[in-house]
Simulated assay, not measured.
Amino acid sequence: MKIRYPAVAGFFYPSDAEELIELIENCYLHKLGPNSLPTKGGKYKISGYVCPHAGYIYSGPIAAHSYYELSKRADFDEITVIILGPNHTGLGSAVSVTDAIWRTPLGDIEPDLEFIEMLWKECEIVDLDELAHLKEHSIEVQLPFLKHLELLEIAKFKIVPISMMFQDFDIAIEVGHFIAKIAKELGRKVFIIASTDLSHYEPQEIANEKDSLVIKDILNFDEKKLYEDVHRYNISMCGYGPTIAMIRAMKLLGAKESKLLAYATSGDITGDYSAVVGYASILIE
């Protein structure tokens, strides 16, 4: 099978396995993290997450909240994790999946080939395209957290990686519809992750104001208002399309509850609040 090699190992996170595990564990135990390592013993419950994708030293503690909650809803059965991320590179198709194996410093993660094949064959706007994923980081940075949970024997994962260059409302809604449809038809245990950062390079006060708007929309399951607010208030949230798709899929799969797990900015890490990036972890179930 094809292998998708890491594009940002050594930049967004360590390329050495021991260093990477140490950093991931530090993210869980960080003052901005959940302050606890994930443990075994979860009971599966379908859930969706908003999770950031910056370098681990910046957004890792916030991302750890999502994976801590995910670990509590996993059992050591095979779970398909659908990861939707924005396409920052401009390479490849407008919306695409790849059926490659994803290599991480902690080991490989396999694709859910049956789910992927159904998605690109049934959903007309989704292509099977490796190029869009080749250098994109938004999906890749989620995978070491998943692989770390495998190493802890908390769960076994396969993935469906969806890269979205086009994030129009109707496109995102259609992607979410087909994710839910195929998950039901295949009877899969699934988690759905929308990989996104929030405001980019705004002063802290403005970032907090703008981010509070989109966080409220997500918590209210309001995909349309999220789309409208991003454009009306010029909010530089890079993965609003993936987030809309995740919300729609989770609604179709029966989700009723939402919770803000954590919010912070890069300024809370660096101490420089003049131009920050916002990060949130949000749970939908």
Rank of each mutant, 00 (worst) to 15 (best):
S66P: 09
G85R: 03
S96M: 08
F76D: 15
K158C: 02
I82C: 05
P161C: 01
L149P: 13
P38I: 09
P144W: 03
E130R: 05
T39K: 15
A132I: 02
D99K: 09
K45I: 03
L84Y: 05
H65V: 08
E110C: 06
L146K: 10
D99G: 12
D127H: 11
P144A: 07
M165V: 12
L119A: 09
I125T: 14
H137M: 07
E78P: 10
P38S: 07
E140S: 03
I82G: 07
G85I: 05
P52H: 12
D127A: 12
P161D: 00
T104L: 00
I109E: 04
D108F: 10
K135P: 02
K158M: 02
I57K: 15
G55L: 05
I139C: 01
A54R: 15
V126S: 00
V160F: 02
A155P: 07
P52F: 11
V126Q: 02
H65D: 08
S71L: 01
K121G: 11
A54H: 10
D77H: 08
H88R: 12
E124R: 14
E153M: 13
M165I: 13
E130D: 09
A74C: 15
L149T: 04
E150F: 11
K156S: 14
P38V: 08
A63V: 01
E130V: 03
K45D: 07
A100I: 01
F145L: 07
M165T: 13
D99S: 06
T80A: 09
M165L: 15
E69M: 11
E124W: 14
H148Q: 10
P144Q: 06
E117D: 09
S66H: 09
I46H: 04
P61E: 02
Q142R: 04
L70W: 08
V81T: 11
Y58G: 13
E130N: 02
I116S: 01
I62L: 11
